[in-house]
Simulated assay, not measured.
Amino acid sequence: MTKKYIYIDESGDLGLSERSSRVLIISSLITDNPAQLDRIIKNARRHKFNKELKKAKEIKFNKSSPELREYLIKALNEINGCQAIHCIMHKGKLYSTYLKEHKDKLYNFVAGGLANNITLNSDIVEIRVDKSKGKNFLRTDFNQYFEKKLRNSSVIGKINIFHSYSENFSGIQFADLLSGSAYQKFNNSDSHYMELIDNNKFPQYCIDLWKRKE
């Protein structure tokens, strides 16, 4: 029986004011062996970054030193069976009044664009989303929409979706690091962190919501 794991997090915000981010990015880390991710973070905590991480419950891109970010991102080049997909929404291209007025639907729409570009063939897929939706009906709405979009281009038996605290899952923490890296590129024109990934070893794809895969 085959099983895949998908971890999801976002960077940017849902605001549309001048002070808001120019993009919203939802990123996924897909793996068949999450234990590899656990080992990387455990090693970082126990050895090289013991002092920095001593009081940190979780690793977040915007709270980590450049050295820690680089170490963890580069480590992804050394593991097998993983890939990342980023869905980028440039807010200047958003014209739907409905989506502008319903932020939860906007988030689902971007996440659906991500799901629509994930292609899997697996008996079971376990999905962990960083827990941000406080109300059950919002989580249910997201789950139903995301699963529908994911099945468009995949052959999957059972899909289990969980909304989890990132401190409990290394995969969500890595999804945060990856989305933060993509945010630096597409919001701040800084490609440094994304360029640390060797696409031959760790495939990484960027989806512009209104364009083709890069």
Rank of each mutant, 00 (worst) to 15 (best):
M194S: 11
A56M: 13
G112M: 08
G180L: 06
I159K: 11
G134Q: 12
F169G: 00
S65I: 00
P203L: 01
K93G: 06
P66I: 07
M1E: 11
K42E: 14
S27P: 03
K211P: 01
T119L: 00
K74S: 14
S153I: 03
N188E: 14
Y205S: 08
N77T: 13
I8E: 11
N62K: 13
D198W: 08
R128G: 01
D32N: 13
H86S: 05
S64Y: 07
P34A: 04
Y71Q: 03
K105M: 09
T31E: 06
D208Y: 00
S191V: 07
K55C: 13
V125N: 11
R39F: 04
S154V: 03
L68M: 12
I156L: 04
A84T: 11
G12W: 07
G180A: 00
E78T: 13
C206H: 13
F146Y: 13
Q144D: 14
C206W: 05
Q173S: 07
K133W: 09
S166Q: 06
L76M: 13
I161Q: 05
Y5G: 05
L24K: 09
L106T: 02
Q204F: 01
E58W: 04
Y205W: 08
F169T: 15
K63E: 12
I25Q: 00
A44G: 12
D141P: 01
I161N: 01
K54R: 15
L209N: 01
K133M: 10
G171L: 05
S179D: 11
S28P: 06
R19A: 09
G134M: 00
Q144S: 14
F186Y: 14
K185R: 10
L29K: 11
K4D: 12
D13T: 06
N62E: 10
E78I: 11
N143L: 02
I197Q: 07
R128P: 03
E167L: 09
C82A: 15
K91L: 01
S181M: 09
D190G: 02
R19F: 03
N152Q: 15
D141M: 08
L94A: 04
D198M: 01
K48S: 14
D141T: 00
K57Q: 14
L106H: 01
K158T: 15
D13A: 02
N116F: 09
